[in-house]
Design a binder for these strands. Structure first.
Lengths: 135, 135
DNA sequence: CCATTATTTGTAACGATTACAAATATATAA
DNA sequence: TTATATATTTGTAATCGTTACAAATAATGG
């Protein structure tokens, strides 16, 4: 596993303590934490951490494509350090988000002439196994 | 084109003036208007219309699958009365949203055992023809 | 026509995000 | 090192789409 500070440097971002801490945390979790979850998780070890810094850092990381910004329509954003092409399944029963570690299908052919495709976001909505069983 | 009030009745929704007006407007436009755009468009003909009613109505229509709620990460929601399976292309240059009138690819095979798929939302991000040319 | 229920309305509250300026830390130059 | 400039962080206040709520109005059923 590559050092987090090194990744930042490679992308032209000065690896401050706060930035390194936020990215390291994001890389260590498999969930898709919200800003507040990140902030609450890091506060004990960084008592002076500001929520604004978490916002700033995530925006910076997102601009440099080190982090994916996910919007599941919950009213707040979630963040994912796994930028490999994959999809998300949102269970409408329990609200959990499941990673589908498979690249979204090729969609280039769907576009009109002259359109350039940069990213594909595939969101699957349904009922997870546990909730299906419970019904 | 089926009468709007009739559609409401068929779905067990009492066709009040406000509800009919909102749905009729949504069915008449090819854009994906925001709550405020809908409100501003209908206000001249319905001076007593309340923004809250627009919110309430859209929530009701959405629950009955008469309207799609779209979230392009702009900070507000957009609504679409065309519920046929299609995709959206968001241009990161001009911000416009283009309808891709093609069903999203079949994704059932991507799900783990026991998961039930209800909806697929495919969001394509890139540069539209006009913006590509301008670059 | 009265009583009940459904719908609409307007205001106030909410909450995630953003703006901003002061405080702090880091880098650069002399 | 010391001074100076620049970058980053911090905390507070503002923004803005949305939601909660209760009063007002409209529709329904006896």
């Amino acid at each position: 596993m590559q050092a987090t500070a090194e990744i930042l440097t490679q992308h032209g971002i000065r690896p401050s303590v706060q930035r390194t801490t936020v990215l390291r945390y994001l890389r260590s979790v498999k969930t898709h934490p919200t800003v507040d979850e990140i902030y609450q998780a890091l506060l004990p070890g960084n008592p002076s951490l500001s929520r604004t810094t978490v916002y700033n850092t995530l925006e910076l990381l997102s601009e440099h494509n080190l982090v994916l910004t996910l919007d599941f329509g919950e009213g707040y954003l979630r963040y994912d350090a796994d930028c490999s092409p994959h999809c998300h399944f949102i269970c409408d029963g329990c609200g959990r988000v499941f990673d589908i570690m498979e690249a979204p299908p090729d969609c280039a052919g769907m576009l009109p002439r002259g359109f350039a495709l940069k990213a594909v976001q595939l969101k699957l909505v349904g009922t997870c196994a546990a909730c299906s069983k419970a019904e």
